[in-house]
Amino acid sequence: MTTIDRRELVRGAFATSFLGLAGAAVAMPSQAMAAPNVSRDTVIDRAWFWMNNNVQYDQQGTYPAPGGVRYRTDCSGFVSMCLMLPAPGPSTSYLNDYSSGISKANLKKGDFLNLPGVHCVLFQRWTNDAHTRFMLFEQSNPTSDMNHREAALSDYSSYGARRAHNIID
């Protein structure tokens, strides 16, 4: 086993135990190149699929994407499903391994905001010319489940703007 393999194994074990995902596999960084190309329109269509099916938040649960592949029903599982990342989806701690950082001013539909180890949301579109408000999709928490709502960018000041490696314009 190489040093990198051991690190990935330890990181995955830590993420699994930390997030209480015993029994649920978490996609590891070595799988980062396994995601197929996906268009921005497809990302948003997939978000609407879970939104229209009122998928309930559950860190232990899974739900099928269009086509039947099952993803975790938490925030990072939702973003992973939309972006067609390896199922059941990397945690917020690993999403950055599947993406590149971008300026928040350059967010486009299908990009996401991520705070590793905490939460992530899928960006849909700007709602004002100043680019201070936007529409997002999120799998939030057991109380509010799936959300499609307007938000202030300032509420996400600690989050990094990300663009998936497999997204195509």
Rank of each mutant, 00 (worst) to 15 (best):
V38H: 02
D41C: 00
V69K: 12
S30G: 12
Q59L: 11
N53F: 01
I44G: 04
V118T: 13
P142K: 11
A105S: 14
V69R: 13
R72G: 03
T92K: 11
A151R: 14
Q56N: 03
P90Y: 13
M84T: 07
T73Y: 02
I102K: 03
P29R: 11
V121G: 02
A151D: 11
S144Y: 13
W48R: 13
D97N: 15
F49Y: 15
V26P: 04
T92V: 13
A35R: 05
G68W: 11
W126V: 07
N141P: 01
S144I: 05
K108S: 12
H119I: 09
Y71H: 08
Q56D: 00
V55E: 05
Y57Q: 05
M33E: 10
V38L: 07
N128A: 08
S80G: 04
N128Y: 08
K108I: 03
L115V: 04
A87C: 01
Y71E: 03
A130P: 00
T92I: 10
D129S: 15
S144L: 12
D41Y: 04
I102S: 10
Q31W: 02
L122D: 04
M81G: 15
G68F: 13
G89V: 06
A34E: 14
A130S: 14
F112M: 06
N37C: 06
P90R: 10
M146R: 03
P142D: 00
S99R: 09
W48F: 14
N53C: 02
N37W: 00
Q31N: 03
L122H: 03
D45Q: 15
S80C: 02
M146G: 07
V26D: 04
M135H: 04
N106Y: 07
R125I: 00
S100A: 03
M51F: 15
S93N: 14
P29Q: 09
F134P: 06
Y71N: 03
F49N: 13
R133V: 01
M84A: 14
C82P: 01
D74L: 06
Y57M: 02
R149V: 13
V55G: 01
M28W: 06
V38T: 12
V26C: 04
T132A: 08
T127S: 12
N54W: 02
D41W: 01
A34K: 10
E138T: 09
P116A: 08
R46D: 10
Q60C: 03
Q59N: 12
H131A: 04
D74P: 02
E138D: 15
T127M: 09
S100R: 09
W48H: 14
T42P: 00
P86E: 10
I102H: 02
L95S: 01
C75L: 11
H148R: 14
Q60H: 14
H131S: 07
V69W: 01
S103E: 09
A27D: 06
